[in-house]
Amino acid sequence: MKFDEMKSDEEKIDKRIKRRRRQFRLSTGDIIFNILNYTFFGLFTFICFLPFYYIFINTISDNELANAGLITLLPKGIHLENYFALRNVNNFGTAVVVTVARTVIGTLLMVIASAFCGYLVTKKEMWGRKFWYRFLIITMYFNAGLIPWYLNMSMLGLTDNFLGYIIPGIVAPFNIILVKTYIESIPAELEESASMDGAGYLTRFRIIVFPLCKPILATVAIFGALGHWNSFIDSMILMGNKPQLQTLQYVLYIYLNRANNLASMMKQGGVLSEDMIADALSGRTIKFTVAMVSIIPIICVYPFLSRYFQKGIMIGAVKG
């Protein structure tokens, strides 16, 4: 009797498995759609990856072949001299340190400020909340211009000062809007329960809100890190008297301009030294090497934050 019951149970299980297999069996249309979908996104990924690959193989290939445009799919005469040559750029080492310090410190302070300010403007009991929030948004649309900005920075003592990189970017209105929108999507009951237990605003922000904001804060961190890493205009304007405070992007910009100027002089028949001629001939590879040095750190960091970035930017776009 027990054997028959066990057999019937096994038959029922087999029927359920077969039924589920039939339910999840892909139709011909689904198979065609998946093939087209994977093919399209595979080609799209390849198209996005190809420029980086092309630039990289030109930087590690023979400079004469690269300058002649003969490097297409595979590197030839592989070497790393172009990257080692960047060590000879004036203030290259200090520029790397300044840029990394600026990116880390500036991004960290901006994330903290964006999180806290975004949390504050979600509180209806905040004094003058609507005024301060609208005042914050207005700064996104109105700008005094470059010269008033420089005069203001000069009067504040932020020229030839490392803090000139950090202080102006701490409060970012767009990031505050993203954080505010994200915090409004968090159930209010979480804060209410903590408030009933006697937790104040800072405690609720530190224990409840801040940990739940990781996706949007990762998004803000990516925006901030990209802005700090790629910026060179402020370095060119503010740090003219202190080359040791210039950023990597500005130093590479000067180096690239030097190579282009030497190439122009060479075409015009100017008298150049051997070192100058070498720089002029390797102008194309210099451009590619500078590009790779500029983007490699961001490419290395972005994959670790991409999943938070996707979630944060989608939720932050639900409300305005």
Rank of each mutant, 00 (worst) to 15 (best):
S273V: 05
V104R: 07
F3G: 01
I315R: 10
T72H: 12
L217V: 03
I166K: 07
P148G: 06
A194V: 08
A188F: 12
Y302K: 02
G145D: 09
L36C: 03
A68N: 14
K12G: 12
L156A: 15
W127C: 00
G198W: 01
Y133P: 00
L178Y: 07
Y119P: 13
K267Y: 09
N91Y: 10
V121M: 15
G270T: 13
L217G: 03
N37K: 11
F288N: 15
I233N: 06
A194Y: 13
L252G: 02
E192Q: 12
L226C: 07
Y250T: 06
P168W: 11
A95G: 02
F223K: 06
T159Y: 03
F92N: 01
D279G: 02
W132H: 03
F232I: 01
P173A: 05
V96R: 00
I71A: 07
F56H: 07
L36D: 00
E192G: 04
I315S: 10
G269A: 11
G118V: 09
N67T: 11
L245C: 05
I237L: 15
F210K: 05
S27T: 15
L158C: 10
I57M: 11
T28E: 04
L226M: 14
L80T: 06
V220R: 09
L158H: 10
V220I: 13
L151C: 02
I296N: 09
G169H: 13
T39D: 00
L202E: 03
I170H: 09
L146P: 03
K267I: 13
K123N: 11
N261S: 11
A95V: 00
R20P: 00
G77T: 06
M6W: 07
M266E: 15
M153V: 03
A144N: 05
L256F: 14
V97L: 12
N161H: 09
P51H: 09
Y201F: 12
T59V: 06
I176S: 05
K319F: 04
L238E: 01
F33V: 05
V97M: 06
F162A: 08
A225K: 10
M196K: 01
N230I: 02
S193N: 08
I237W: 04
R204F: 10
Q23T: 12
S294W: 02
T28V: 08
F232R: 01
K15Y: 10
